[in-house]
């Protein structure tokens, strides 16, 4: 076993893991915030995520066909695309809640879950249909911005592309902003209050429905941002691309302790890093017996192990009620 090689690729693996992890973290927030207030899993969130990616790719393709994509500073393009993706996904998430979940608020638990799965399929095919009519294709590729692909050399063997740095910085900024919003503002405190006890929150004068809408909007915006970053980082998207990252982000939310916001961030990072480690090291460590294609099995085996010993998740807690 070539120990030098193993250590040599480590920084690269960590960077890849962080990118993937931040992506999962951003998506996981949407699952965990909604679960926090409604104890309901929004299975349509993976489409909220990919919808953001599609809005982003459409804007970039539009700029490209207008011949101006490379003429604007890349950072401006990215900020605009990111904001547009966030806004679009936030609106979509808001609408989904109003149309498909709110009327079922007092129905048995399984019903809104089925509704969510229905919305998920519906959105996949609406995106497919729209893109098929509009572009005659639904597998779309993010146009490259040359300056984003520039690689910065950190050492002789390690380099990192500007876009990877951008993804990490953007994700960090958004996680920080969300953390500040939830923990340091009145409306953030209200979100936590509603998550804990809706009736008591309404007795404080909190409009519970408005707070629930807000959690969908915030979760949607984070999902949309993740969609754009996903497109920028990996390039190819199609209407069904959201499913797997969505499922993994949901797993990340459970791993961190579903309903727990820092937990979703941590869970996403842990899952992303595990996956990157497995992808790079499995084949090296097993002498080729297991290849990178086993990364999910490896990552999920560890998850199952963690959940066996910590069923509430890494940061999940049981708050004891006092008499």
């Amino acid at each position: 076993m070539d120990v030098e090689l193993l250590i040599g690729i480590l920084p690269q693996v960590v960077i890849d893991g962080l990118i993937l992890g931040f992506m999962y973290a951003l998506i996981a927030l949407g699952y965990t915030m909604v679960y926090g207030v409604l104890e309901f899993i929004n299975f349509a969130h993976s489409e909220v995520f990919i919808f953001g990616a599609f809005v982003g790719v459409e804007i970039m393709l539009g700029l490209k066909s207008a011949g101006v994509l490379e003429r604007f500073p890349w950072i401006l393009v990215l900020v605009v695309v990111l904001l547009a993706g966030m806004l679009a996904s936030a609106l979509l998430a808001f609408t989904i809640e109003r149309v498909a979940y709110r009327p079922l608020r007092h129905a048995p638990r399984l019903i809104p879950l089925i509704s969510a799965i229905g919305v998920s399929f519906f959105l996949q095919d609406v995106i497919r249909l729209t893109e098929s009519i509009w572009r005659n294709a639904f597998n779309l590729v993010y146009p490259t911005i040359e300056s984003l692909n520039v690689r910065l050399e950190i050492t002789e063997t390690i380099d990192v592309s500007i876009k990877s740095l951008v993804v990490i910085v953007a994700a960090l900024l958004m996680l920080w902003a969300l953390h500040a919003l939830v923990n340091r503002t009145k409306v953030g405190t209200a979100i936590r209050a509603v998550a804990e006890d809706q009736a008591a929150a309404s007795l404080m004068g909190i409009n519970v429905n408005r707070i629930i809408s807000l959690t969908f909007v915030i979760g949607g915006a984070m999902g949309g941002a993740a969609g754009v970053l996903f497109g920028v980082q990996y390039g190819l998207i199609n209407p069904y691309t959201g499913f797997i990252p969505g499922l993994k982000a949901f797993t990340a939310a459970v791993l961190g302790g579903i309903g727990n916001i820092p937990g979703a961030m941590l869970g996403g990072l842990v899952l992303g890093l595990l996956e990157a480690f497995a992808a790079s090291y499995l084949s090296l460590l097993t002498g080729g017996a297991f290849g990178a294609e086993y990364k999910d099995i490896f990552a999920f085996s560890i998850l199952i192990l963690i959940l066996i010993f910590r069923p509430k998740g890494l940061l999940g807690e049981v708050v004891r009620e006092r008499a």
Binding site: K186, T189, R192, A193, D197, A200, M204, I206, V319, E321
Partner: peptide
């Protein structure tokens, strides 16, 4: 029905929410 996971100060802030 106090908010167990909120601090004492946050609970009081919520009382003045309106």
């Amino acid at each position: 029905r106090i908010f167990n996971r909120l601090t004492v100060r946050e609970n009081l802030t919520m009382g003045a929410y309106t």
